Every structure is written in C-alpha cells, then in structure tokens.
Computed example of a mutant assay.
Amino acid sequence: MRAQEPRDRNRSRGSRASGEAGRPWWALVLLTLAGAVVAAALLRAFSGPVYLVPSGSMEPALLPGDRVHVDTAAAAGAGLEHGDVVVFDGAGSLAPYRSRTALDRGLEDVAAFWGVGAAQDVYVKRVLALPGDTLSCCTADGRLERNGAPLDESYLGRTVDAAAPASRSTWAFEVPEGRMVVLGDDRDVSRDSRALLGAPGGGLIPVEKVIGRVDSVAWPLDRRGDVPAGAEDGSRG
C-alpha cells in the first residue's frame, strides 16, 4: 500500500487564489502598484516632469504618443530663445477657459504628471517670436520673416519655397512685452498663434504660461534623444 503524500499547507484550496504567505491576490496587486508609483515618483523627482504629445502638430520633431522630458528651469519664460520647443498652459488663449470640478482637475493633472494622458489645456509648440519681435508670412520664396530677416527652418523636414511656403496663410505679428508667438512644425494641421489672429490677445501667448522647455524624448525607447531648438538664427541646439 502506497503511503499518502503529505499535504502542503501552503497550497491553495479549491479555486481560491492566494499569494505567498497566504496574502490574497488583490493585496499583491496593490503592493505592486504602490511600488511602481513610488519608483516612478522617485524617477520623476530626479528627472523632471514628462508630458504626452497627443497630436501630430509637431511632426517630424515630435510624434503622437511621444513622452517628452520638460526642463522647468524655463518656467514662466525664463531664458527662452527663438526656436525653443515649449510646453505651456493654453487656457484662455488656444483653449477657452473651462469650468471644471476639483476632481476633474485632479484626475487630469495626475494623468499628465505620469505622462499617461494629455492635459486638455496644455500644448507643445515652437517659439517663433518673443517680446519686441515682428514675425510675418511670407517672403517671395515662401519663408517666414522675423525682424526683416528670412528664416531657414530645417526642423520642418521639408523644402520651403514659393509653391510650398512655411505657412499657407498670410499674416503678421508685432509682439509686445510679456508675449510670444508659437507655431507647430506641421503648419498645415497645427492650431497655434495663427488661429487666434483677430481674437482678444491676437494669438499672442503670455510668456508666463510657459511650463518648461522640451529638451528630450523620454519614451518610446527607440526615439529617446535630445530635442534641439531650431538653429535658424544660431540659437541653442
């Protein structure tokens, strides 16, 4: 007669799931989530905020779904230069003021904090004009003109000429103190300062609304790398 196999007291009974040391499955899930949140919080504390790029308005430099690292040293416009790619609060300019509950704001801010969602009022654009500048479109050969000088915008990733100008509409900005003009790199699809010409504020975004300067793509891994500023005038990058 074969001896009966000793019963393993740690083995789960029936179909009831349990973790090691008898912990229920949901406790392990909560512990795992808590660990991930703490790790992400530590990473963010050392590396700075990450924002999700929700649209193709900044192609080819940034693609939909990119998570970009933002240097908050440029918050409120500190040290901004022509060609910088910035994240800014567009409430009251590109985005109308919205009535939101505290819960709505909290959930949206948490998603943006972790780079898993895009805040509805936050935009990513390139700075083309700063206080005291004039910016217009376009010269005879299709280029933007700033302070009387045509711009060579290599970051557009395409040929700019009279048949394919840097922007298909004609416009001009004179930028007062405390304001800036921002444009997307994909000018045919981007909603930017041009969309607000004739509106209160004239499409000029308050510099104080800048959250930070985009300095790199953090995710996905195959796109990790710096996001240099436009070099059409020899500025940063």
Results as ranks from 00 to 15, higher is better:
Phe46Val: 12
Leu156Met: 14
Asp133Tyr: 05
Gly178Phe: 03
Lys209Ala: 15
Val189Gly: 04
Asp8Arg: 13
Leu183Asp: 04
Ala17Phe: 11
Val160Leu: 12
Glu59Lys: 02
Ala218Trp: 06
Leu30Phe: 10
Arg143Asn: 02
Ala17Cys: 05
Ile211Ser: 10
Ala91Thr: 12
Leu130Asp: 05
Glu177Gly: 14
Cys138Arg: 08
Asp66Trp: 04
Val29Gln: 14
Asp104Val: 03
Leu221Arg: 13
Ser57Asp: 10
Gly22Asp: 04
Pro165Cys: 08
Thr159Phe: 07
Pro6Gln: 03
Tyr51Glu: 07
Asp188Val: 11
Asp133Lys: 04
Leu42Pro: 01
Gly79Cys: 05
Pro220Trp: 01
Ala91Ile: 05
Gly237Cys: 12
Leu33Gly: 12
Arg179Asp: 02
Thr32Gly: 15
Ser99Ala: 13
Tyr97Thr: 12
Gly157Ala: 08
Val160Ser: 05
Val85Lys: 00
Ala95Phe: 05
Gly230Val: 07
Ala112Asp: 15
Leu221Met: 08
Arg168Tyr: 03
Gly237Lys: 13
Trp25Lys: 11
Gly225Pro: 04
Ala218Val: 03
Tyr97Gln: 14
Asp71Pro: 02
Ser15His: 15
Glu145Leu: 06
Val160Phe: 01
Val87Phe: 01
Val116Leu: 11
Gly230Gln: 08
Asp66Met: 08
Arg9Tyr: 07
Arg7Thr: 14
Gly178Met: 04
Val87Lys: 00
Ala76Ile: 03
Leu197Glu: 10
Cys138His: 03
Met58Tyr: 08
Asp226Phe: 01
Trp26Thr: 06
Arg13Ile: 15
Ser235Asn: 06
Val50Asn: 06
Gly237Glu: 11
Thr32Asn: 11
Ala195Lys: 00
Leu80Glu: 03
Asp84Pro: 07
Arg67His: 08
Ala129Gln: 03
Gly203Arg: 13
Arg7Lys: 15
Asp66Phe: 07
Ala229Pro: 04
Gly203Met: 08
Gln4Cys: 07
Glu177Ser: 09
Gly90Asn: 06
Leu28Pro: 00
Asp121Ala: 13
Lys209Pro: 00
Val85Met: 06
Asp84Gly: 04
Ser190Gly: 00
Leu107Ala: 13
Leu130Phe: 05
Ala3Glu: 10
Val214Asp: 12
Pro206Cys: 00
Ala111Gln: 14
Ala91Met: 08
Val181Cys: 00
Arg179His: 06
Leu130Thr: 01
Asp133Trp: 03
Val68Thr: 10
Gly202Tyr: 06
Leu144Ala: 10
Ser15Gly: 14
His69Val: 10
Pro49Asn: 07
Glu208Phe: 03
Ser55Ala: 15
Leu94Ala: 03
Ala119Trp: 04
Gly198Asp: 12
Ser99Met: 09
Gly106Glu: 11
Val214Asn: 09
Asp215Lys: 07
Gly83Arg: 06
Gly117Phe: 06
Gly14Ile: 11
Leu52Tyr: 12
Gly157Ser: 02
Ser154Glu: 12
Arg126Gly: 10
Leu128Trp: 13
Asp133Ala: 01
Glu20Pro: 15
Ala199Lys: 15
Ala3Trp: 12
Val110Arg: 13
Ser99Leu: 07
Arg7Gln: 14
Ala163Met: 05
Asp141Thr: 12
Glu20Thr: 11
Ala111Lys: 14
Phe113Lys: 15
Trp219Ser: 01
Arg100Asp: 09
Gly225Cys: 04
Arg179Trp: 04
Tyr123Glu: 02
Ala73Cys: 00
